[in-house]
Write a protein that binds this DNA or RNA. Structure first.
Length: 119
DNA sequence: GGTCTGACCGGCG
DNA sequence: ACGCCGGCCAGAC
């Protein structure tokens, strides 16, 4: 939605990817997680999963973007190290009802929320 | 203005 | 089964 960009090209034209990532992550249901590759695939660039993580880097400061709900393909909290306290990520996930052990999401397959399938 | 890195993924050896 | 390499996009030095 939105994606207005005000047709202002001299502001930030290359935020297409980031904006999409933020939106998708923001739409992640509570108690549900997704992977970088899933988002990338939803955007049409499954290869650029790295970029998704990079987008999170800019989003981690935005509380509207639950980066803690985004994990890698292994269901491992790879980005937990980037949080204020790293434990905040799994703590948040646990608060959402997701079991996290050793930085690994339990029942990941069941908790997995694929935007490509949902959206 | 060119080069490297970065919270990944998938394929190949 | 494990390890390494290439690929995509964008930002920082």
């Amino acid at each position: 939605m939105k994606s207005k960009k005000t047709a202002k090209n001299n502001s930030k034209p290359t935020y297409n990817f980031f904006d999409d990532v933020f939106e998708v992550v923001r739409l992640i249901p509570k108690g549900r997680v997704t992977s970088y590759g899933a988002i990338a695939k939803y955007l049409g660039t499954k290869m650029s999963a790295r970029m998704v993580g990079w987008a999170m880097n800019a989003a981690h400061g935005d509380k509207k973007v639950p980066a803690h709900r985004v994990v890698n393909r292994n269901g491992l909290l790879t980005g937990k190290h980037h949080f204020s306290p790293p434990s905040a990520m799994e703590a948040q996930l646990k608060k959402e009802g997701i079991k996290v052990t050793k930085d690994k999401i339990q029942n990941f397959s069941d908790r997995f929320w694929d935007p490509y399938l949902e959206l």
